[in-house]
């Protein structure tokens, strides 16, 4: 797993992909920071963090579309699948590499709360919880992208599938706000990726949500493994 992780992490910065992702994310996050905090002289950073979710929703496929689709297209999966390294450790290595690039980029945005801390008054706990929630939500997004990359050989199709699945989860929130049937609303709220982030946004750390995000990622990573295994049987 370590071998795959190191190679994949380096690959992001051996090509333009890593730089494009980091630049796009930081640029858009900067725009939201300027609009929400600088322009309005507000120290409410979690609103900016909430907007950054949509930025990551937009940019996450850049991180994940290549992971497995490109391996299959170039037949390099013949190397990966014929060595003693197991498929699960390859998938885990690739997933952790994408997650690390995301985490490093997220860390770069810490400069914004530091600025707010210097010039205003903010709650460190609130910010920390917001970042923890964002990290786990991002992890779930990446696992969806990994799955989308496993079902196709085309990077474009992989990116579109990732958008499709994530938008489906986003739509779930819209449905929740429109229908008011007790059990259905509760059920959808329980499954909603974005609804769970709200508690972090308000400064509450929820262990249940962490478990949910980890389980969600685990399911999608396992689905990716199953898809890759199914290809061997076809």
């Amino acid at each position: 797993m370590r071998t795959t992780f190191v190679r994949e992490f380096q690959e992001y910065f051996n090509t333009m992909l890593g730089y494009v992702f980091v630049s796009a994310f930081l640029f858009l996050a900067g725009v939201f920071f300027a609009v929400n905090n600088i322009n309005t002289l507000s120290a409410e950073f979690n609103t900016t963090l909430n907007d950054c979710i949509y930025v990551f929703l937009l940019t996450a496929p850049l991180l994940t579309m290549k992971l497995l689709a490109e391996e299959k297209k170039t037949k390099r999966d013949q190397l990966l699948m014929t060595t003693r390294t197991t498929l699960s450790s390859i998938i885990a290595g690739k997933f952790l590499a994408a997650l690390s690039v995301f985490a490093v980029t997220l860390c770069c945005t810490l400069i914004y709360p530091v600025i707010l801390f210097i010039y205003g008054s903010i709650s460190a706990t609130l910010i920390m919880n917001g970042y923890i929630g964002f990290f786990f939500l991002g992890m779930a997004f990446i696992s969806v992208g990994m799955f989308a990359s496993s079902i196709t050989e085309s990077q474009l199709t992989s990116a579109i599938c990732t958008y499709g699945i994530l938008l489906l989860f986003l739509c779930m929130d819209l449905i929740i706000s429109k229908i008011h049937v007790g059990i259905i609303t509760s059920f959808l709220q329980w499954f909603s990726l974005f609804e769970r982030f709200k508690s972090y946004q308000y400064g509450t750390f929820s262990i249940a949500s962490v478990v949910y995000y980890i389980s969600f990622s685990f399911v999608f990573l396992n689905l990716s493994i199953m898809v890759m295994k199914y290809r061997r049987l076809k």
Binding site: R7, E11, N14, T15, T74, R76, L79, L80, T85
Partner: peptide, 23 residues
């Protein structure tokens, strides 16, 4: 395989080291 499974963004030495670790 029919098409050599190489990573073209790596040098020959780096790639072979990577394969060695995979194996």
């Amino acid at each position: 395989p029919e098409k050599p499974p190489v990573y073209d963004t790596m040098s020959v030495y780096e790639f072979l080291c990577y394969v060695a670790r995979l194996k």
